[in-house]
């Protein structure tokens, strides 16, 4: 891994000194803490680091005008971040010439990759990025319970939510300038941090990621109340894959899952 990090630092320094990018988004590691770090000069590239605990999804910064204003930029990208970049690209949120990835993962450093080359790198080294087995087991365990038990489980979890929206801030997929939860004419989702408002927020947040979630886990990692948000995300990803073969973030241009359709879609639940 240290060789990979050296190569990543060298590439970041090269891009900055050549002026190919104005900013590099990466991580720095201090003890048990992982911070995002923004590098604008080649000499600072030594500060960049990476390990498996870097779970914050840097692609979430790409919607911020102050970051976008400094394009072209490079992003230190784990496989999950690479997928987020491709989702953003397929949704026309970033342009190919604006963003480059310094692709790095458990199998080593992939080099400076344009968005067009990310798909090939992912498919070669990380072709089946599915939720971890332990998470899928928890989803299966909960799914096997009765509806009342599930309702009780989620009631206990959702009641903890303080509606800080850290999950939304951490998610690269949540880039709406005005989120539905902030609209109040009419107000669809109660903004009080209790009861039905929490339920609606959690369900709608998860559903808005249907066929788009790359499973990076940044939302759950950001939640100060420790809600098991990845249970919802993993369940949706699993359903979307099993029913529609959805694997978001592997193609530069992909049709959105919700927003496209096929005459062959399953209709057996419709009377």
């Amino acid at each position: 891994m240290s060789g990979a990090i050296g190569a990543m630092r060298a590439d970041a320094a090269k891009l900055l000194s050549e002026g190919a990018v104005k900013l590099v988004l990466g991580y720095c590691v201090r003890g048990n803490e992982r911070y995002p770090c923004f590098i604008s000069e080649a000499a600072q590239a030594e500060a960049l680091d990476f390990d498996q605990s870097c779970r914050q999804n840097l692609a979430a910064y790409l919607r911020k005008p102050e970051v976008r204003g400094r394009a072209p930029l490079a992003v230190v990208s784990s496989p999950a971040v690479c997928r987020s970049l491709l989702v953003l690209s397929s949704e026309s949120q970033i342009r190919e010439n604006e963003v480059r990835a310094l692709a790095i993962g458990p199998k080593g450093y992939g080099g400076i990759l344009g968005l067009g080359a990310l798909g090939a790198w992912l498919k070669a080294d990380y072709p089946d990025l599915v939720p971890e087995q332990a998470l899928l087991d928890r989803v299966a365990e909960l799914s096997a319970k009765t509806a009342q038990e599930r309702a009780k489980f989620w009631m206990k979890e959702f009641e903890k939510c303080t509606r800080c929206y850290a999950c939304r801030a951490a998610c690269p997929g949540c880039y709406c300038e005005r989120c539905i939860v902030e609209k109040n004419m009419p107000q669809w989702i109660s903004s009080a941090a209790a009861g039905h408002g929490n339920y609606a927020w959690e369900v709608i947040r998860a559903f808005h990621q249907a066929g788009r979630c790359t499973g990076c886990g940044a939302c759950e990692a950001a939640c100060p109340q420790g809600l098991p948000l990845m249970l919802l995300n993993a369940r949706l990803s699993q359903d979307a894959f099993e029913e529609f073969g959805s694997r978001p973030g592997y193609e530069l241009e992909a049709k959105p899952l919700i927003g496209s359709w096929s005459a062959e879609d399953d209709g057996s639940f419709i009377r």
């Binding site: 509806a147 599930r150 989620w154 066929g211 919802l232 949706l236 096929s262 879609d265 209709g267």
Partner: peptide, 16 residues
């Protein structure tokens, strides 16, 4: 149809 097919499963997962 596509939207409901996923949403109904999410609702069921949360107890509805």
């Amino acid at each position: 149809r596509r939207r409901w097919s996923l949403f109904r499963k999410l609702l069921a997962f949360t107890g509805i």
